[in-house]
Design a binder for these strands. Sequence first.
DNA 1: TCAATGGGCGCG
DNA 2: AAAGCGCGCCCATTGA
Length: 376
Amino acid sequence: MARQYGVTSVNAPKQVGAALLGMGEELSAKTANGQIAVGKEVLLPLADLDKDWHRIGGREPNPLADAVLRSKRAGKWAVSYCAAMLDAMDSGGRIHPMINTLGARTARWSVSAPPLQQLPSSEWRIRRCIIADNPGDVIVASDFAQVELRVLAALAGASRVVERINAGEDLHSLVTRMVFPETAAMTDAELKNDKRRKLCKTISLGKAYAGGINTLARQTGLPVQQVKTAVQAYDRAIPEFGRWSKRLTREAYSNNMTITTPSGRILRLNRDKAYTAIAFMCQSSARDILGEALLNMRDAGLLRYVIGVVHDEVIASAPRKDAEEVSREIGRCMTMPFFGVDIASDPEVYGPTWGHGYAKHGPAADAIAETMEVAT
DNA sequence: TCAATGGGCGCG
DNA sequence: AAAGCGCGCCCATTGA
């Protein structure tokens, strides 16, 4: 398909860029080195697709852009995930990934061969390769609820936020009520699909990940000026985050670009990115909370069920009859206070394979249900 | 033939 | 004022 347009390899950005230009497309985005960018951000709009690969209906799709996108995704999945898992499989059908428990600069874990933490989550065909230990067993999992944002609230000393989290109020809803006073009386149900809640959620994540105004504008699809106004309202409603950021940045500058986490880890920031201090702090502390949870699981004798970790999520395998209890107990081990804020988790029982929520919601629900019938 | 670099893309 | 953070790993290209 792509060959018709003179593209012999979809992984060669030069070829793809030249072919698209030849078709009359305008490619204005450039990479850091000044070359023409032809990543997903460029290709998806050309193919008239949104970030979930659904037709937008805004233009005639460019067939080459569409073909390149699909070919690259298929190649990536086949090689990086399928082949990598088959390569890593032992004679008993098990994989034993390499875990570097201090892999990242923030001390997060890195996992390789295969990259268990990177398996596609947006659909189920790859993750279903991970199956429960024994026939009749099921995968159970538990993930932390907005752990990095709760860490941010606690360490920044945003006591009004922390109090409301601990009272059980939904995090993004409570932030929305603080930032937009006119929403203060709205219920969670009313706020659920409100664009102000969506905006506040994006801004909150931007705070935790050190994102800028332009990134927020791109993520929300809103004009920069409107985002700017909203961020100002946010900072006025919750001034603690900005103050903490300033304090941490100062600490970094006076300590040779390092900051020290509450657990005593010394984190080195990029020399020219002092503004990432809160991102490093939140990510590293979230990692330590997961470590604490794993120690709790060890003490509770639950580690024998655990088969993997994905940053803020614990994956386990258990006999079906024990699944509810194992899941609940793992969830309990992941529940703890952290500098005054409650850390909560969301335990779930999946099915015979690892596939997030699809057994319940996805288009493959029937197939999964059938698989479960056969397996049990 | 090999290592380094750049672009790209999967995850939380 | 302005700034997405952290990874693993793929392919193509480049320069020894």
